[in-house]
């Protein structure tokens, strides 16, 4: 049962993720992203990581994709014209293809670790919280600062600062 559900959710996730890339309509793409995230949450549930599944739904599916959709609808992009291939998307594409190639090449070659030996940190609420505040305290703090920087960046970009008076 578990294996069947895992395969089902895995295929569902990949198909939905492909839908994000292939769809020309931005709203359809955002909805596919939502489905893909729900599929990943399903995978987490099959793996007994309930906490991760619900956090994924709460943060990504519930808030972030909703904001994506919100922005897409506000901008109302209608043009089907493909954007010019500038340098940054080109580099990103090459990197992405390289990553996929490495992933496919390593398929079946790497020995997956014994499931019993992997500590199930996402299984219990308490264990998860304890790990966040002890072993992984530094990464959590660094990520927090990254988000803070992004937030400050958004404020700087969206507000026009011309003199010191604007800040006060």
């Amino acid at each position: 049962m578990g294996n069947f559900l895992f395969n089902l959710f895995a295929v569902f996730t990949v198909v939905a993720a492909a839908g994000v890339v292939v769809n020309k309509n931005a709203v359809n793409a955002a909805m596919c992203l939502l489905l893909s995230l729900v599929g990943v949450a399903g995978l987490f549930i099959v793996l007994d990581a309930y906490l991760l599944a619900f956090l994924l739904l709460l943060v990504y599916a519930g808030a972030i994709v909703a904001l994506f959709l919100f922005i897409v609808m506000l901008l109302d992009t209608k043009s089907d014209a493909r954007p010019q291939l500038t340098r940054i998307p080109l580099v990103a594409r090459i990197l992405a293809f390289a990553l996929v190639a490495v992933g496919v090449a390593s398929f079946g070659r790497l020995e997956s670790p014994d499931p019993a030996a992997v500590p199930a940190l996402g299984a219990s609420l308490k264990l998860y919280a304890y790990q966040l505040f002890t072993t992984y305290l530094l990464p959590v703090q660094i990520l927090g600062f990254l988000l803070l920087i992004a937030m400050v960046g958004v404020i700087v970009l969206s507000k026009k600062f011309e003199g010191l008076e604007d800040i006060r």
Partner: peptide, 25 residues
């Protein structure tokens, strides 16, 4: 009876926003 109880309520309830966004759009 799952021990994430309330978190599950919040997570699934937060998906309700899609019906409003989609209906309006």
């Amino acid at each position: 009876n799952v021990d994430v109880g309330l978190l599950a309520v919040f997570a699934v309830a937060s998906l309700g926003v899609y019906s409003l966004i989609l209906a309006g759009w």
